[in-house]
Design a protein around this nucleic acid. Structure first.
Lengths: 131, 131
DNA sequence: TTCTTTGTTCGATGCATATCGAACTTAACA
DNA sequence: TGTTAAGTTCGATATGCATCGAACAAAGAA
């Protein structure tokens, strides 16, 4: 018996796709404006994958507890290095879960709560309730 | 400045942990009884990770559409090899999402719907609705 | 102006995991 | 008694990704 392989089936997508090819080094706060996907482009598998990590789940929960107030990356209690922390925020951002904006040297991030509730009703509730 | 590294923080867990060390080769249908985690041990990150794959999401959706009826692995429309298919079912099983039982040479699987709805309310709805 | 704070990016490392073909086993069927 | 159907396991391969230290950049404070 012969099995036809994956053609029509949706392929796994890379979690983080580079948004620009500019050979940047270091931050450009105040200059760099973060890129956020349109919520219509956000897929459930990408959301799931972004939330499959305990660190990132913790970030989202902290943001939920902040109740709409934007937090600096720093304010989130996370016991990993700066680089790793930055990575996790980037993942959440490119998955469409958080919104980030520079303010001075800080980057303030908040949940895209309203949009998420519209596109994936029950998702945020699941996150906050899930033990 | 010095950063304290990950001690108290919940570590990433391996997705599939071997359930036995027996050097088996091949299936033992009718003899092998699949091992399923207690729902109380199931964690949200593990669930999320299991559902982060398009194949597995498709499996869960097919099971949802079957409306409680158990399906043979074969009956799920999946364009991957037997081995890969088996792998994905194992991931879903060890994540606590599906229940599998041998019947002759077939393994019949169903969603652990009631338990899931109790422990993670809204999860299955999210899966079926999410585009 | 110099130092500190904040966060990104790079390159490296090591582990996780998606995928396959092949070998295998049992149950059911011819 | 073969033969087929169904599904698992192994070993290999390639890729994904979490993690870190170091180098970097800009804004703000000293």
């Amino acid at each position: 018996m012969h099995i036809e392989l994956n053609t029509a089936f949706p392929a796994r997508q890379k979690l983080i796709r580079p948004l620009s090819n500019q050979p940047f080094r270091g931050t450009v706060p105040g200059v760099k404006h973060y890129t956020h996907p349109a919520m219509s482009e956000v897929t459930l598998p990408a959301i799931m994958q972004a939330l499959a990590d305990p660190c990132r789940l913790a970030i989202v929960r902290d943001l939920q507890q902040a109740g709409g107030r934007a937090l600096a990356c720093n304010e989130v209690r996370l016991e990993v290095s700066k680089a790793t922390r930055s990575h996790h925020f980037e993942v959440l951002r490119s998955a469409g879960i958080i919104f980030t904006e520079m303010e001075g040297t800080k980057c303030m991030t908040s949940l895209r709560r309203r949009e998420l509730n519209k596109r994936f009703p029950g998702l945020l509730k699941l996150v906050s309730a899930g033990k």
